[in-house]
Design a binder for these strands. Structure first.
Lengths: 331, 331
DNA sequence: TTGTAGGCGTTATCAC
DNA sequence: GTGATAACGCCTACAA
């Protein structure tokens, strides 16, 4: 690959003139500029961002860490990030953690070594966030935050979303509501459960332990769990799933049990299920403001990159929206 | 961020000793090594991959260019790429083209400037591939190829897949088969149509022009197109969609028209539709070997990166598989 | 086993 | 308006 020296030599100017043409074209004479441009063309010269990064101490790269691009929620979020980043001349390095804290930490260190200008992360462990906070990296937590860690974050108001969904069911007459939640300490999950509890409390409905179901955030586990639930005598009239994949498993289990939606059971969940637009009835869901989650997070990160000294913590909490659907019925 | 000099100074050794510890630990004495490691820890030192790349002329980065990560097919492909790449110490830069040739070329040049070691691309234009072929970049075309361009590629046998799907319908007794294809010159689309034609010809079924429908590869267009199709007197008994998003649109149009699947109309398509596992009946589909498409492409690319001189063109053509489903009925 | 000098491709600094 | 030189952080010779 041609270097700036080759260009300079062939154009019979000094290296620095070529460099200036690239970075500050106005101070190079038109004649010289034209000559150099031609040589660049001939040599198909592309300035090395590597070398440039080395001296500028800036890579114009943002590292993105998320659980899994296969998840509709995350890949659609990623596109909004990309659009904003790309419009501001930033490239994206992408890594998936599969909710594995070890992978996560590994990737963070990798980004550090790559000297990315900033990190956008949907963290799966408080440890990573702590590491980031102690590091010199600019970063923004997305979708999940940790009380004890002071950092910028952009999240959805999971509490409000779950509260609204629960209230929606209650107002339709449901009291026997099962929730499908994760077993761990993930921020959204914990908040959502708090929202659920709060709504139940507000309407003085007692929680039924056998309706509070912990499982992995995937179809398989949800399918099994719901299948068991539906075998019991004591059935819920509605199921609220904290995750769309678990809802997919739920739907299958419900159909396998020969029950109809919403005739025998009402369903609602967080995020749209994959293929939500062809599935009938439309599953009611709490829709997160994905576009803002992507755009705002990236905007804030770039802001911080440009002005790292700012001590002020940027906290963005976005309201989700309830999208009603035929999957919930009045009883 | 601490540099190798800081580490060397604090550990009271020379820079090169630190460097060696990083690159060839065995030739550094255990005592010195320990001392240096401790300092690294203290300083939270991460060697700069930027500087390293500059001197090694190697970035350990692979650039990935694809139409859209939101598409299930591509994001699942990407994960296989990531797994393989990550296991071989390569990082991934990701860009989406939205099938826009201008964006595509822009991203290729960007990768060139970033000095990525190689490019994995699902190209949307022959021009990009030509540019790549003329450039000094290592690259592998994925899912799509161009006859006139000599390059490594890993693709699915689209012709065979479409042939099999069509034959499947024919053997079920269908002759009035509509195809939903793209309007452009995209390799998979062209090949699939050839496969469709070949199967029809084999069974001496005449093509009906009004059953050959061109549209964009999205739900909306497919929905509209199929809606119109179903309003006509002359209806097909089966629809074969070349893309899963178009199939989603088709399903909606079919349901809107009050038709039942597969009672009134049989459906089959390429790739799994989003939410395929909860939709009933299961839509029959031609399943591409995504894992191999990801793994093989990455493997070949890395092979070429390690041995760029090899002139031999690596061509991998993978067979897709027909996954039957309740969406097709015998007539 | 450890160290010195030079170079990777660019830009910043100071000169002309 | 243009140019020489040092610096960015690391590694590859070659020496000791």
């Amino acid at each position: 690959m041609a270097t700036i020296f080759d260009v300079a030599a062939k154009a019979k100017v000094s290296v620095i003139t070529v460099s200036r043409l690239l970075n500050n074209p106005s101070i190079v004479s038109a004649k010289t500029a034209e000559k150099i441009f031609k040589v660049m063309e001939d040599l198909n010269y592309q300035p090395s961002e590597i070398a440039r990064s080395l001296v500028k101490k800036k890579t114009n790269t943002i590292g993105v860490i998320m659980p899994d691009v296969k998840n509709t929620f995350f890949n659609s979020w990623f596109r909004f990030v990309e659009d904003y980043a790309s419009a501001h001349q930033y490239n994206l390095l992408l890594c998936n953690t599969d909710e594995d804290p070890a992978k996560e930490l590994k990737y963070i260190k990798l980004f550090q070594a790559q000297r990315v200008d900033g990190v956008l992360i949907v963290p799966c462990s408080a440890k990573s966030a702590e590491y980031l906070a102690k590091s010199n990296l600019n970063f923004v937590l997305v979708d999940r935050m940790f009380e004890k860690i002071k950092s910028d974050f952009v999240i959805t108001d999971h509490f409000a979303g779950a509260f609204e969904a629960t209230e929606y069911l209650i107002k339709l007459g449901h009291t026997r509501i099962a929730v499908l939640k994760g077993a761990g300490e993930l921020y959204p999950d914990v908040e959502r459960f708090r929202g659920f509890e709060a709504a139940m409390k507000k309407y003085r409905i007692e929680l039924n332990d056998s309706f509070i179901l912990n499982c992995r955030f995937d179809e398989l586990c949800a399918g099994k769990t719901v299948k068991e639930l539906l075998r019991k005598k004591d059935k819920p009239t509605a199921i609220f799933s904290f995750n769309s994949l678990m809802m997919a498993g739920t739907i299958k289990a419900v159909e396998d049990a020969g029950l109809e939606i919403p005739k025998h059971i009402s369903l609602i969940c967080f995020d749209k299920i994959p293929g939500y637009n062809i599935f009938t009835p439309r599953i009611a869901s709490i829709v997160q403001p994905i576009e803002q989650l992507g755009r705002e997070a990236t905007r804030i990160l770039i802001e911080r990159i440009k002005n790292p000294s700012t001590g002020r913590q940027r906290k963005v909490v976005l309201k989700p929206k309830l999208a009603a659907g035929g999957s919930c019925r009045k009883i």
